[in-house]
Design a protein around this nucleic acid. Structure first.
Length: 465
RNA sequence: GGAGGGGUGUCGGAGCGGUUACGAGCUCGCCUGCAGAGCGAGUAUACAUGGGUUCAAAUCCCAUCCCCUCCUCCA
C-alpha cells in the first residue's frame, strides 16, 4: 500500500494469514500464472523455515462471463469446464512442486456468504439496487483509490468503457448481476450471479478474517480488482483488509504481457515437457518478483545452464551426504556453508530477493561439484556441504524427479554392463549405451569410484522442438 | 492524458552514495578413453542521454528519450 517494506516477527505473530487471488478457470494454466504461484510458494517455504505458521488460501473463480461463454462454445456445463481446468491446475502445479494451499475456496461454493456481504452493503447504504443488479456506490467510500493511488476524477476522465446508464457513477461496480440465463443463483434482488470482486472479499472474510497479513496476486489486479475488494471489505468491516499487498510483475512475451486475452500464452504443461519443472522455477525466480520478466529462448537457455549446475550438485550430495566435512582432516567447508546460508537468508528476508538467493545456491553447487571432481567426498561429520545445499534447495522449492523402481533397476543394469565394456576397452559399445540413456533423459558421470547418474532436465528438448 | 515500474557488460540479473554481486555464453589451455563435472587464462571502456549536488554517483536532484503494466476481463 505504501510501497514500503514491512517486517514480520515470528515470535510476536506466530501465524500469518495469506490470501492469493487465484485463477479464473476457463483455460489451461500458463507460465505467467506460474510466476505468481511459484513466488508465493517460495514465500511460504521461507516463512515456514523462519518459524511462522502460515495459513494460505488461494481461490478459484468459477463463475464468470468467459467461463460461461467458453462452456457454451464447447456445449458443456460451466461446472464441467471449470472442473477440467481445476484438475489441470492441480496436475501442473503438482509437477512444479508447489505446496498445496490450506484451502481452495470457489465462488460457486460460497454463494450464501457472498449474498450476505452484498446484503450488508445494501443495508449500510453503500450499495444500491437497480434493475440490472446491485452496485457499490463508489462515492460512499471515502478512501477509494488508495491502493492504486488513483483519483476518482482521473479515472472517470480516462474511462474506456461506455457508462451503464443505470449506474450512478461510471466507476460503480457490480456486486450482483441480475440475469436470466444459467448459471443462476437466487438472491434477494433477483436471480443472477455475483460480481467478480465480491467473491474475494467473501472468501477472505470466511476463510481468514480481516485483517489478513498478506494479500497478493498479479500486478494487473491492483486496479480495479484489489481496489474494489478494499472498498467492499473495509466499508463493511471497518478494518483494513490486508496489512501488506504483494503484486507480482507480469511475464512478457516479445515485449507484451503474456495473457489469455492476448492469446500469447505458453501452457505450463508444454513448458515442462520441453524444459522441465525446475528450469521453470529457476527462470521465474531469477528475477525479482515485483519486476516484469521477459520470456525468451535465450533467457531460458541461461536458466537451464544454471539449473544444470544445481541438478548435478543435487545428485552428488544425495550420493555423498557427508561431502565437504573434512576429508582426512584437511578439508572443511563449514564456513562456506555458514556464509551461504547467512547470505541466502538475508537476501530472501529483504523483500524476497530470489536472484541473490539463487546465486548462493549456485555457489554451493559449484563447490559440491568441485569437491566431487577432486574426489573429496567422504567426510566424517554430520554437518556438511550437502546439508547446507539441501536447505537452500528445499527453501526455494526445487525438486528431484521421481523415478519408478523398475526404471532405476534397468538404468543401473545398463550402467553396469557399460562399465564392464569400458573395462574391456570396448568404448564404442559403452558410449552407445550412454547415449541411449541420455536420450532417455539420464545423465551419467564417471568418477574414480563408479558412475553417478541422475535424471537431467538439461537433456530435454528445450526450445528446439 | 493520468498512475505505477523499468532502462546495468555478448546475454540474464543483483546492487541504489565509496568494496569483483552472482551466473550464463564465447575463446584458448588443463583434466577425462571420450563425455560430464571441475580447474586456469582471456572476453578493451558495463551502468539510456544531458546537466547538477558531492571529496566520491549506476546509486541523490533536475530535464530529455525509450520500453512495459494499469486506467475493460486478465496472474
Amino acid at each position: 500500500m505504501s510501497g514500503e517494506k514491512k517486517t514480520f516477527d515470528s515470535t510476536e505473530q506466530p501465524t500469518l494469514k495469506i490470501y492469493n487471488c487465484g485463477l479464473t478457470v476457463y483455460d489451461s494454466p500458463h507460465v505467467g500464472h506460474a510466476k505468481v504461484i511459484i513466488f508465493f510458494d517460495t514465500l511460504r517455504r521461507l516463512l515456514l523455515r523462519k518459524g511462522f505458521r502460515v495459513r494460505y488460501v488461494e481461490n478459484f473463480t468459477d463463475v464468470d462471463d468467459k467461463i460461461i461463454q467458453r462452456a457454451r462454445e464447447l456445449g458443456i456445463s460451466t461446472t464441467l469446464l471449470s472442473e477440467r481446468y481445476i484438475a489441470e491446475y492441480f496436475r501442473d502445479f503438482g509437477t512444479l512442486n508447489v505446496m498445496k494451499a490450506d484451502s481452495y475456496p470457489r465462488a460457486t461454493r460460497i454463494m450464501a456468504d457472498i449474498i450476505q456481504l452484498v446484503d450488508g452493503l445494501v443495508k449500510m447504504g453503500a450499495a444500491y439496487v437497480v434493475p440490472s443488479g446491485v452496485y457499490l456506490d463508489v462515492g460512499k467510500v471515502k478512501s477509494y483509490g488508495k491502493l492504486s493511488k488513483i483519483k476518482l476524477s482521473e479515472l472517470r476522465a480516462g474511462a474506456r468503457v461506455e457508462p451503464d446508464p443505470e449506474k450512478k457513477d461510471p466507476l460503480d461496480f457490480a456486486l450482483w448481476k441480475i440475469y436470466d440465463e444459467e448459471p443462476l443463483w437466487d438472491s434477494p434482488w433477483g436471480r443472477g450471479r455475483p460480481g467478480w470482486h465480491i467473491e474475494c472479499s467473501a472468501m477472505v472474510h470466511k476463510e481468514l478474517g480481516e485483517p489478513i497479513d498478506i494479500h497478493g496476486g498479479g500486478e494487473d489486479l491492483i486496479f480495479p480488482h484489489h481496489e474494489n475488494e478494499i472498498a467492499q471489505s473495509e466499508t463493511l468491516f471497518s478494518k483494513p483488509l490486508s496489512n501488506l499487498w504483494l503484486h507480482v510483475g507480469m511475464l512478457r512475451l516479445s515485449g507484451e504481457k503474456m495473457s489469455k486475452s492476448l492469446g500469447n500464452v505458453i501452457p505450463i504443461a508444454e513448458f515442462v515437457r520441453r524444459w522441465g519443472p525446475n528450469t521453470l522455477r529457476y527462470y521465474l525466480l531469477s528475477g525479482l518478483y515485483r519486476r516484469q520478466l521477459e520470456y525468451s529462448i535465450n533467457v531460458l537457455q541461461n536458466s537451464r545452464e544454471n539449473w544444470r549446475i544445481v541438478e548435478s550438485a543435487k545428485a552428488i550430495s544425495d550420493r555423498f551426504p557427508r561431502i565437504g566435512t573434512g576429508e582426512k582432516g584437511d578439508q572443511d567447508d563449514s564456513s562456506a556453508v555458514t556464509s551461504a546460508i547467512l547470505n541466502f537468508d538475508s537476501a530472501l528476508s529483504d523483500d524476497m530477493n530470489t536472484p541473490q538467493a539463487l546465486s548462493e545456491l549456485v555457489k554451493l553447487s559449484r563447490l559440491i561439484n568441485l569437491r566431487f571432481s577432486s574426489g573429496q567426498v567422504d567426510g566424517d561429520r554430520e554437518e556438511s556441504l550437502s546439508t547446507g545445499f539441501n536447505l537452500l534447495f528445499d527453501t526455494l522449492g526445487f525438486s528431484k524427479p521421481s523415478i519408478p523402481d523398475e526404471e532405476t533397476k534397468s538404468v543401473e543394469e545398463r550402467i553396469t554392463s557399460r562399465n564392464e565394456l569400458r573395462k574391456r576397452g570396448e568404448f564404442g559399445r559403452a558410449d552407445q549405451i550412454r547415449s541411449e540413456l541420455e536420450r532417455a533423459g539420464y545423465a551419467l558421470v564417471d568418477y574414480p569410484g563408479g558412475t553417478l547418474w541422475y535424471k537431467s532436465e538439461y537433456l530435454l528438448p528445450g526450445g528446439s522442438e
